[in-house]
Design a protein around this nucleic acid. Structure first.
Length: 444
RNA sequence: GGCUCUAUCGUCUAACGGUUAGGACGGAAGCUUCUCAAGCUUCAAAUCCGGGUUCGAUUCCCGGUAGAGUCACCA
């Protein structure tokens, strides 16, 4: 039975790297009809954020991830304590009353062996007694290779803090065993502490699960992706107007690839296609252009109505518009937006008369404007066909260049050089407003 | 600095000893067109370097180099 878990800490907004780990762990289990467990690692009271647990649940829900079991580590304190004390009794751990400190000097650790290890103290924090000369190794199922450490290189890690809470090292080993986790999937940053866990498995007599370390998503500027350099929190990206479908698709393909190089996946398709051979070994760089492309793909796949409501949630001004006008606008810009928040930029001229910069106009613009005003004023049937017909006729009668003429109209009405087709736009804007804007451009 | 991981177009990647090294994003060009998009077509673009092993290395081994992670009573 394949059982995986996603084990986040409720310490702040979820990052796309964490989310990706959840997707991979979910697919790994569900591909084999196994169980996916959500376990909250809330063992650091100091860093915990209010509402953090609910935020994680909400976010997973947005992406359609459901869990079979749920655990809170803070409710299991007595279990960890029991295991830690057993280790002391067996001589594999010791009490320590040193002050909590960052044992760092010149930017890196000096001593790996704790000064308390042979004092025989009877209380305090509990630390692991790392053996003197042992080879510690395992085969990583993501890297598909054996990784070896020599024990002198491993430090006497704290297992149980003096406040009674376990550290990650203790809790993860105990819980993964008790919850019968078959595959441990986690970030690359955990690789260096794996020997600690391996030692614990051995001392507890636990069977060692499959362990795999995922790549880190890198920032284009270098280094691990950080919240500071551009928004990479899941909430932030969602708020920017990225669709969950796009975010999902983008993120699973950053560090994993199918043999056939297929690009478009929804959650169930991913589960079906999943294969841990597809895990990448080297760190991918966050590629926003590709994310934009995915988002465009999913935006165009949406129904006009669904997209319309996405736009509404991004723009109060848009929402105030007439219902049928909203839908017309949605259709008009559907092929043009990258993110749903683009509604505010792309459709702004519909609810706000532009400030027209005259320098944008070509030299014949006054003639264009005059003809346009006369033509539009004379139109009796305010529909696309008539507008197009009459405008084109005027262009021909006056010997204008079609492109130039429409560009003048575009600038006068929208204030911009890049917009949806202008006749489609003015039909939504209405005859009166169109005339008003033309007049204003003229006299401004 | 110690330990560990990694290395194919700018980016995401395919190849599991034998290919004209394939695809996608992005870029360029063209078609379409009232602009911008979208769509379609075409083009440019890569095996980090040096040694081995082998008839043959992107692929296996070793060494450099570069990037990344980690070295807390944080996860």
């Amino acid at each position: 039975m394949v059982r995986t878990r996603f084990a986040p800490s409720p310490t702040g907004s979820m990052h796309i790297g964490n989310l990706r780990t959840a997707f991979y762990a979910y697919a790994l289990a569900k591909h084999e009809k196994g169980d996916f467990i959500l376990r909250i690692e809330d063992t650091d009271k100091k860093r915990e954020v209010l509402g953090g647990v609910d935020d994680i649940k909400d976010l997973l829900g947005i992406f359609g991830i459901e869990w079979d079991e749920f655990y809170l580590q803070s409710e299991r304190l007595s279990v960890y304590k029991k295991f830690a004390e057993k280790l002391v009794a067996d001589g594999h751990a010791f009490y320590c009353r040193c002050e909590a400190k960052n044992a760092k000097e010149d930017g890196f650790s000096t001593s790996l062996r704790d000064v308390c290890r042979d004092k025989g103290l009877k209380s305090g924090a509990i630390k692991l007694r790392v053996p003197d000369n042992e080879e510690i190794k395992f085969t990583d199922f993501v890297l598909r290779d054996e990784i070896i450490w020599h024990s002198p290189v491993v430090f006497d890690a704290t297992l149980l803090k003096s406040d009674g809470f376990p550290t990650y090292h203790l809790a993860v080993v105990v819980d993964d065993h008790e919850m019968k986790i078959s595959h441990v999937l986690r970030g690359h940053d955990w690789l260096p502490s794996t020997p600690i866990h391996l030692l614990l498995y051995k001392y507890f007599g636990f069977e060692i699960p499959e362990i795999g370390h995922l790549t880190d998503i890198l920032d284009p500027e270098g280094g691990k992706l950080s919240k500071r350099k551009g928004s990479t929190s899941v909430r932030g990206l969602l708020g920017e107007g990225y669709l969950p479908e796009a975010l999902f698709n983008f993120v699973i393909l950053s560090g994993w690839a199918p043999k056939d190089n297929r690009e478009l996946f929804n959650l169930s398709e991913f589960v079906k296609a999943f294969d841990s051979d597809g895990f990448q070994k080297s760190n991918p760089v966050f590629n926003r252009e590709k994310l934009d492309w995915f988002n465009g793909q999913y935006i165009r796949q949406m129904s006009d109505e669904d997209l319309n409501s996405k736009f509404q949630s991004q723009s109060p001004q848009f929402t105030k518009l007439d219902q049928s006008d909203q839908l017309s606008i949605t259709k008009l810009i559907k092929d043009r937006v990258k993110k749903t928040s683009d509604i505010n930029e792309f459709a702004k001229f519909f609810w706000e008369a532009p400030v027209v910069d005259k320098n944008l106009f070509s030299e014949k613009y006054t003639e264009h404007l005059e003809v346009a005003q006369d033509t539009i004023l004379a139109i009796e049937q305010w529909n696309n066909e008539t507008i197009n017909e009459q405008l084109l006729k005027s262009v021909k009668d006056n010997g204008f260049k079609t492109g130039d003429f429409f560009m003048t109209l575009r600038i006068a009405i929208t204030g911009q050089k890049f917009t949806p087709p202008i006749n489609d736009s003015i039909i939504i804007l209405g005859q009166e407003e169109t005339l008003t804007r033309l007049q204003k451009a003229f006299s401004s």
